[in-house]
Simulated assay, not measured.
Amino acid sequence: MSGLHLTVTTPMSVLVDETGVASVRAEDRSGSFGILPGHTEFMTVLPASVLRWRTAEGALHFCALRSGLLTVENGSKVAIACREGVLGDDLHALEAEVETLRAAEADADRRERVEQMRLHASAVRQLMQYLRPGRPAGPGAAPFAQRPPGGEAP
């Protein structure tokens, strides 16, 4: 094999379209991994991380990704579709940017969990109000209100 064909795309642009790539290094939730020519079919979700690849000439390139999907096809094509990507030569600056993205994602996740808990608590309060003993039957009453024998509402 002569190398990998690497493509990195966002919804708005193609960031990388390079042939003859010697190796690719990426990171998913399980950790860092490498891809060489001849790699088996593969698909994984990438969190905010830095993608690294080495050309056949030995040049090392970097791209900070804001989560994405990586696929390997036929042992020669590596495709990454991501929300946002930033190409750069300074690994430390890109890693700092990725840490900022991870912190923002963690904060968004925290806010979503808080909102979910708030909605859950509100739903439980409403259920408790409808199921409260002694609540009058009639319009707006709980659908499963107790009725005395004879079928008439109190």
Results as ranks from 00 to 15, higher is better:
G3P: 06
L4C: 01
H5R: 09
H5C: 01
L6K: 08
T7W: 07
T9H: 05
T9Q: 11
T9W: 00
T10D: 03
T10I: 13
M12N: 15
M12L: 15
V14Q: 13
V14E: 13
T19E: 15
T19Q: 14
V21I: 15
A22Y: 10
S23M: 11
E27I: 07
E27N: 07
R29A: 15
S32M: 04
L36C: 11
P37V: 02
P37Y: 00
G38P: 10
H39M: 03
E41N: 11
E41R: 00
F42G: 07
T44P: 00
L46C: 05
P47W: 03
P47N: 02
S49T: 13
S49M: 13
V50A: 00
V50I: 02
L51Q: 04
L51N: 01
L51C: 05
L60D: 11
C63R: 06
C63W: 02
L65N: 04
S67F: 11
G68A: 09
L70K: 02
L70A: 10
G75V: 01
K77V: 14
V78S: 01
A81C: 08
R83V: 08
R83S: 10
R83M: 05
R83K: 06
E84A: 05
E84H: 12
E84F: 08
G88H: 02
G88V: 05
G88N: 08
L91Y: 15
L94H: 04
L94N: 04
L94F: 08
E95K: 14
L101A: 12
R110G: 04
V114Y: 05
E115C: 01
Q116V: 07
M117L: 14
M117K: 11
H120I: 03
S122Q: 12
S122V: 03
S122T: 02
A123Y: 04
V124Q: 10
Q126V: 08
M128P: 02
Q129A: 03
Q129T: 06
R132E: 15
G134T: 03
R135S: 14
P136T: 03
A137G: 01
P139I: 12
P139N: 11
G140H: 09
G140M: 06
A141F: 09
A142S: 14
F144K: 08
A145I: 12
A145Y: 12
Q146K: 14
R147G: 09
E152V: 09
E152L: 13
A153I: 09
